[in-house]
Simulated scan of single mutants.
Amino acid sequence: MNRGAMRTPLGRALGLGSARDGVEDWWRERVSAVALVPLTGWFAVSILAHTGDRYPAVISWLRSPVTTTLLVLLLIALFYHTALGLQVVIEDYVHSRAKLPALIGVRLGCVALAVAGIVAALVIAFGA
């Protein structure tokens, strides 16, 4: 069947229809969600296991290479997933000139928070 056969003449003239790029964003969001499941579970169990520990014990745990690596992966997956989710909300519900600045602001905010968290984890890990 012809691709344009199901569209109205006005829709064809204006180029309205599927942008054919939504599936990629949908998959990215699902993959990041799947990555967050074990990482969030690890983090929650680890925090509960260290509840009541003194400061030096927690810092020692955070300086472990495995802990630092998993924490950095958690931050990357978390803020990537957050940016994708907020992008969908803005694209679906913001219908004004504020859409592009909102998308840019969300993306920059998520990057800034991820970088701040990663830098903090690395500062603790390397004892700077």
Rank of each mutant, 00 (worst) to 15 (best):
V89A: 14
G105K: 00
F126H: 08
V23Q: 13
S46C: 08
G127D: 15
I59D: 12
A102S: 15
A98Q: 12
V123R: 08
G85Y: 11
H81N: 12
A116T: 02
R63D: 01
V31P: 00
L103T: 06
V66A: 11
L75K: 05
V89S: 09
D53S: 15
G85C: 07
V88K: 13
T82C: 09
P38Y: 03
C110T: 09
S32E: 12
L122G: 03
A83D: 10
V88S: 09
A19F: 11
A120R: 09
G22R: 10
L75M: 06
I76E: 04
E29H: 11
L62Y: 02
V23A: 15
L71S: 13
A57H: 06
Y80M: 03
V111M: 10
L73A: 15
F43T: 04
P38F: 02
R63S: 02
A49T: 03
L78G: 08
A49F: 05
A120Y: 11
G17H: 10
H95D: 12
Y55L: 15
L103N: 01
G52K: 06
L39P: 03
V72T: 08
A49K: 07
A98C: 05
W26A: 14
A33Y: 07
A121K: 03
L74C: 00
A19W: 13
A83L: 00
Y93E: 11
S60M: 02
V72L: 01
S46F: 04
G117I: 05
L71F: 10
G105R: 03
W26Y: 13
L62G: 02
A112G: 10
D53C: 07
L78R: 05
R97A: 10
V34F: 13
A77F: 06
H50Y: 08
V89P: 00
L75N: 03
L36Q: 03
T51R: 14
C110W: 06
V111I: 14
L100D: 11
W42K: 00
Q87F: 04
W61Q: 10
S64I: 07
R54D: 11
H95R: 14
V37I: 15
L70D: 01
L36C: 02
G105T: 02
L74R: 04
V88F: 07
G105E: 05
A112E: 06
G85T: 12
L71A: 13
S18E: 12
V37N: 07
A44E: 10
V111Y: 12
S46T: 13
V123I: 08
G52F: 06
A35C: 10
A57D: 05
L39E: 04
A114K: 03
